[in-house]
């Protein structure tokens, strides 16, 4: 069940990505509609984070290409925002919540301009949206996990993008924060944004998302929630790996085989 849309916000074409010479995603081919809340669902090690990292150009592609708003990433960076996993940074870093939120404005500033009062105002507004304005000057290591996640979100909000890619924004977050975040994401969607979220919990996926991507080394399904969150498709996603695919992946790594004979034609 892979449903394609016309005029997509995001098009992933035949994407193959590998980690240490072992393919972790095979030939993923999907398109996403505008103004949607999209969940990427799958078991551990299914390649969920890999997919959004590959979309953001953080990993080299073995094959295929990605287009956002019909253009390559380089041309539309300012319209795309990425929220990495919370554990990926050192929270002991000497920075306040406001400092982190302000980083969202750096992309617009160019090489030489330094953030000024306008950027500070944008960052404060972003913090307000996630309910963190009272903690603006708090050092980030003194925040709870949920608060840290909100700060990360505020940084993305300060970027004022049209497409948001978020890596596990609900991981290690208390229930109150989760509700607050999902409410915020809904508002964003209602304002015309597209939000793509890597998510773990099947239970909540049903009410959170309007579009679901089911992933397990390959794309199992991509489409509206009611058509994708079905028992047979879930069984296919979670019912173990495709043995042959895993075997070939291992062979490629063990024999140090090139994953593709030729480099991808378009970046």
């Amino acid at each position: 069940m892979i449903q394609h849309v016309t005029n997509p916000v995001l098009e992933v074409h035949d994407l193959t990505v590998s980690y240490q010479r072992k393919p972790v995603l095979w030939d993923v081919d999907l398109t996403l509609p505008q103004q949607a809340l999209v969940g990427i669902i799958g078991p551990n090690g299914a390649g969920k984070s890999t997919l959004i990292k590959a979309i953001m150009g953080l990993l080299p592609l073995n094959s295929g290409f990605v287009e956002l708003f019909g253009k390559p990433l380089e041309e539309v960076r300012k319209r795309v925002s990425y929220v990495p996993q919370r554990e990926s940074v050192d929270w002991d870093f000497p920075a306040s919540a406001l400092d982190v939120a302000m980083m969202g404005t750096y992309g617009q500033l160019g090489l030489f301009r330094r953030p000024g009062s306008r950027e500070k105002k944008l960052a404060m507004e972003a913090l307000e949206k996630v309910g963190m304005q009272d903690f603006a000057h708090r050092q980030i290591s003194q925040l709870s996990g949920g608060q840290q996640q909100r700060v990360f979100l505020s940084r993305a909000l300060a970027q004022d993008a049209d497409l948001y890619l978020m890596d596990e924004p609900f991981a290690g977050v208390d229930i109150a924060t989760e509700t607050a975040i999902i409410e915020l994401l809904r508002q964003m969607r209602d304002n015309g944004k597209t939000v793509v979220v890597v998510h773990h919990d099947l239970q909540s996926a049903q009410d959170y998302f309007d579009w679901i991507i089911l992933l397990n080394m390959r794309l199992v399904a991509s489409g509206p929630t009611e058509e994708t969150l079905t028992p047979p498709l879930l069984e296919k996603t979670y019912g173990g790996r495709l043995t042959e695919l895993s075997r070939v992946s291992e062979l490629l790594q063990k024999k140090q085989f090139p994953i593709r004979e030729t480099k991808p034609t378009r970046k």
């Binding site: 953080l58 960076r77 990425y82 940074v89 870093f93 982190v100 980083m103």
Partner: peptide, 9 residues
């Protein structure tokens, strides 16, 4: 602080 985000922007 955050090389991944830096690359992304």
């Amino acid at each position: 602080f955050d090389p991944a985000f830096a690359t992304a922007i």
